[in-house]
Design a protein around this nucleic acid. Structure first.
Lengths: 250, 250
DNA sequence: CGTCAAAAGAGGTCAGACCACAGTATACAC
DNA sequence: GTGTATACTGTGGTCTGACCTCTTTTGACG
């Protein structure tokens, strides 16, 4: 099985297989490699689980393209397994996004600035439509991640953020006024455009801490003599994937 | 196939399957779920790829225990796919570890302080043995991650760090004097013990930037009119996993 | 008591058939 | 000629049952 994985890995690293490319039909490919279809499928399944390959029933198997999203499903499972807490997720998000914002302020290009401005405008226009608002919110943060120039950090952020999507959706739906939120995004945009990493970082942290509070996900204060809540079966931990635009913004 | 995944997920979240537990033999389990062994294996393979399950040939299939390590293999592949650069890896590492160090300074317990001191001592004792030195180096950083109290960030750091292991090994092997490095670790330890998040962050950043320079992994300065190096097939990108002690330190 | 060979139990692979889905070509009605 | 329904083709998904390989246990033998 590892034979298949290594073979495909070599093809990818060798450049003979690029994102979006299609691999031969299972029957043919298995014959080429002198292995059974079952073994081939095991290898492909492995890579599909990692997000490296995308399988489309009745169509074919392709090398994943679009924004990298590694460990997406993994985080969810491992979270359930190790009892990751919501506040920990948010803490990770804050650490990542503040750093990302600073980097974006340092390296963001005009195209990113334009895209950010666009989304800010859309957010203001959607203050009365929570669902639409959240969509632009997500894209806004995603553009910052891209502007940071570090796809690794962007991918990690995407993974962490994804698993919080539904909670954000619920929160935003009962939000009464999104104007304040939109304005914070505007300020962040201005700081990035002004190439002020420290300012961007500060504003991003401020923004996220506010969002965290809105979702009641603060870190519980350390109290002595109070058992840490025997995490009930359906405790507030992981969730599903969020939808994503295929050809990412910008 | 997703049926298997969902079933196991439910068992994990429901608490009837805990880390280290063994699932029934494939033949039995498949019969229980009224599916074929092939389908069951597809589901198990999927979870194994995510690191949720551990398969041991001739022995059985178990729920993963030990330190969470999500997306490990994934990062490597996606890296090859999207052409992640070494300096980006290092940048991600710096962002993560500086934050981790600050958190460790805030929340680290006595047990962590003791473990850190232990490793610092071992590092000083191994200044003439690069391989052994690196081992303690790795554990030192891992303890900090644990002391941060955020297993999510710790897991992410572990994933990022793993893929740099061999490069670190090569670098450390030709290092002439590790005393300076050991001393920096000592200083970081002292800052954490003194509960000085800012100091710990600063020292950690200093330490990592020095390590980065030692490996020649700085971000290439932006030069105009010079194509961004058509990433050669075997460009300096991903690498293999690093070995890890099973029952993690501390 | 120790050694090593056989057996049992588990995952890994194989082979070929059949099912389910998506896209395309074809035939038919209008 | 146009358009819709149908059949066909290609591809991944599942099933079956056999056999291979590895690990652990067992027990015979020295």
């Amino acid at each position: 099985m590892m034979q298949v994985v290594n073979h495909l890995r070599a093809m990818i690293e060798g450049g003979s297989l690029k994102p979006g490319d299609r691999i031969p039909p299972e029957r043919d490919f298995a014959h080429q490699l002198n292995i059974s279809r079952a073994t081939l499928r095991a290898g492909i399944g492995y890579l599909a689980a990692l997000g490296v390959m995308k399988i489309r029933h009745g169509v074919g198997t392709f090398v994943a393209d679009g924004p990298p999203d590694f460990g997406g499903a993994s985080l969810s499972f491992i979270g359930a397994l190790h009892g990751f807490q919501s506040w920990q997720m948010f803490e990770a998000r804050i650490l990542l996004e503040t750093g990302l914002a600073a980097l974006a302020a340092e390296r963001g290009k005009e195209e990113h600035h334009a895209a950010l401005a666009e989304e800010v405008a859309e957010m203001f226009a959607a203050v009365d439509n929570p669902i639409e608002y959240l969509g632009h919110d997500v894209i806004f943060h995603r553009i910052i991640a891209q502007a940071s120039g570090n796809p690794i950090l962007a991918a990690i952020m995407e993974t962490v953020t994804s698993s919080m999507y539904d909670k954000r959706r619920k929160t935003v739906e009962r939000a009464t006024d999104l104007r304040e939120s939109a304005d914070m995004h505007r300020q962040i945009y201005r700081a990035i455009r002004a190439r002020s990493p420290l300012e961007a970082r500060k504003l991003m942290e401020q923004h996220l801490r506010m969002a965290q509070a809105a979702q009641g996900m603060e870190k519980p204060s350390t109290r002595k003599s109070s058992p840490p809540a025997e995490r009930s079966t359906t405790a507030g931990t992981m969730v599903e994937k969020m939808p994503r635009k295929e050809s990412s913004a910008s």
